[in-house]
Nucleic acid binder design. Structure first.
Length: 480
RNA sequence: UCCCCUUUAGCUCAGUUGGUUAGAGCAACGGACUGUUAAUCCGUGUGUCCUAGGUUCAAGUCCUAGAAGGGGAGCCA
């Protein structure tokens, strides 16, 4: 007999028919003549209720069933006499697939802290919160691929291992097969990287952008969606050493086309989740309300989770230049009353988290796109504006999480690009292939990077990035 | 990496100016209960007080160092 997934079963009105469900026990409630088992198979946040009549099922079997055990239950789908559900399964046969000793099984039918669940990351898929997050995560991945597919973009797998040492996007993880205790040395006593596997120094990628640009210079519009690695010793709720990044790169797009695409994409994905993940979103919304119950009003989320998502959908993102942002910040009450930890004084300063949050959460009260940053605080590949002082960069700032997208129009002029590389000390020799795209048939083009887990934070309402990825990699933590 | 906070039962936490056998709620287990919804009621047990030193007649409590976790900052997506 085939297995019925709980998600479909709960929607079914075929009462009277024989069904088989398999899943993990969430709770068992027992009274004199009857017992109830809440069973979950991961297909939905909702459990199916198994009704156990002691006349039909042996009682010693029932004593072996505890929270966490896995069961195969065959029985009749019946209309529920209780009030919590429409249908339930009246068990005819229960097979225990795997027991779970209650003295050892760490998950209990009660609320656990997220910190505790992180320590048992191998089991936290069995919780409501974590299974909801991961079902939504999948829907998001799917929505992103669908959005770009509908737009005619081509997905490119850029390399995980790169030799490029010039991207300037943070500390990198070295990839090597050399013996760390006894590496081959050159005549001058240095490590001889020529003897390494690739015949040169290699690292895990910190960005697929440069390779993405190469692909766009032929395919037109491409995107990457892959793992990215940063060896920064960052210990915050917004950083991972291994995370997933979406990087579209588009030929013939200027900075405005770029912004339009990013805003359209974010809204598409959010709309998709609202339309396709209502059960899980509703659960996460309730979870958030409960979690924030004890907090003072000003520390709570200003919107309910789904309201927040709808708000993003229904409002245009604010678009301002860095210079406008600077004026808003400098003239703000916060700044005049010296309430910022870092006072806003001189044009050219790099905005701190507190400034970004002020713009998004206090001033505009919606997502903000800041463009045309001073060239000195941005990367070498960004296109220089006519003023010679700013570059065509754009950062999208979201409430609570800060920068969610960073992008720019790229410098397509070979001479200007070389000048910027010289100014910023970027080695040109090993990037000959990148420069070639400006040498042969160069075109205006743009792109951006979107931190997938940061988007997950926003959509799920979770506070710590370690709870929106199955197995977080952070400094001093690679247990699972 | 820097600043602040935390670490006591399976989980969440209390533990007074240092003082005898270290507590609560939940979970678990046993029993009761005609259908429960994180059931309810009664009962039972639970400890490397993070680690290593130190001060003291005496340390869960004070001091030093370290580890892990959390919040914030930097770096960034």
């Amino acid at each position: 007999m085939k297995r019925n997934r709980i998600k479909e079963l709960l929607k079914s009105d075929a009462t009277g028919s024989e069904v088989r469900v398999m899943g993990w026990v969430r709770t068992k409630r027992q009274s004199k003549n009857v017992a109830f088992i809440a069973l979950n198979d991961g297909s939905t946040i909702n459990n199916v209720q198994i009704v156990v009549d002691f006349a039909k099922i042996q009682e010693d079997l029932l004593q072996k069933i505890h929270t966490g055990a896995s069961l195969s239950v065959t029985g009749e789908l019946i209309e529920s006499q209780g009030s919590g559900q429409k249908v339930e399964v009246l068990a005819k046969e229960i097979i225990i697939l795997g027991e779970a000793d209650p003295d050892e099984y760490p998950l209990q039918p009660k609320r656990h802290s997220l910190e505790f669940l992180r320590e048992i990351a191998h089991l936290r898929f069995r919780t409501n919160t974590f299974s909801a997050i991961n079902r939504i995560r999948h829907q998001m991945i799917f929505a992103i691929h669908r959005f770009f597919t509908e737009k005619g973009f081509v997905n490119i797998h850029t390399p995980i291992i790169t030799a490029s040492d010039a991207e300037g996007a943070g500390e990198m993880f070295r990839v090597t097969t050399l013996d760390p205790k006894n590496p081959p040395l050159t005549e001058t006593g240095e490590v001889d990287w020529k003897a390494d596997f690739f015949g040169r120094k290699t690292n895990l990628t910190v960005s697929g952008q440069l390779e993405g640009e190469l692909a766009a210079m032929g395919l037109g519009e491409i995107y990457t969606f892959g793992p990215t690695f940063r060896a920064e010793n960052s210990n915050t709720s917004r950083h991972l050493a291994e995370f997933w990044m979406i990087e579209p790169e588009m030929a013939f797009y200027d900075i405005h086309d770029n912004m339009d695409l990013a805003e359209e994409m974010l809204k598409y994905v959010i709309r998709y989740i609202l339309e396709n993940a209502d059960d899980d979103l509703s659960f996460l919304s309730q979870r958030l309300i409960f979690e924030e119950k004890g907090l003072p009003q000003d520390k709570r989320s200003p919107f309910e989770l789904k309201e927040k998502l709808r708000f993003v959908l229904e409002n245009d993102f604010a678009r301002i230049t860095y210079t406008e942002a600077f004026d808003i910040l400098r003239n703000s009450k916060m700044n005049k009353k010296k309430r910022f930890q870092f006072p806003v004084q001189e044009w050219g300063f790099d905005m701190q988290s507190e400034h970004e949050r002020y713009l998004v959460e206090k001033h505009f009260k919606k997502p903000v796109i800041v463009t045309d940053y001073p060239k000195d605080i941005k990367s070498f590949y960004m296109k220089l504006n006519e003023d010679g002082k700013t570059v065509r960069a754009m950062d999208i700032l979201f409430p609570q999480i800060g920068e969610i997208v960073g992008g720019s129009q790229r410098e397509e002029n070979l001479e200007l690009l070389i000048r910027r590389m010289d100014e910023m000390g970027v080695p040109k020799e090993e990037m000959w292939w990148y420069l070639d795209t400006r040498k042969f048939g160069s075109v205006p083009h743009s792109g951006f990077g979107l931190g997938f887990e940061r988007l997950m934070l926003f959509v799920t309402g979770m506070k710590n990035i370690r709870d929106v990825i199955a197995f977080p990699r952070t400094p001093k933590n690679a247990e699972f």
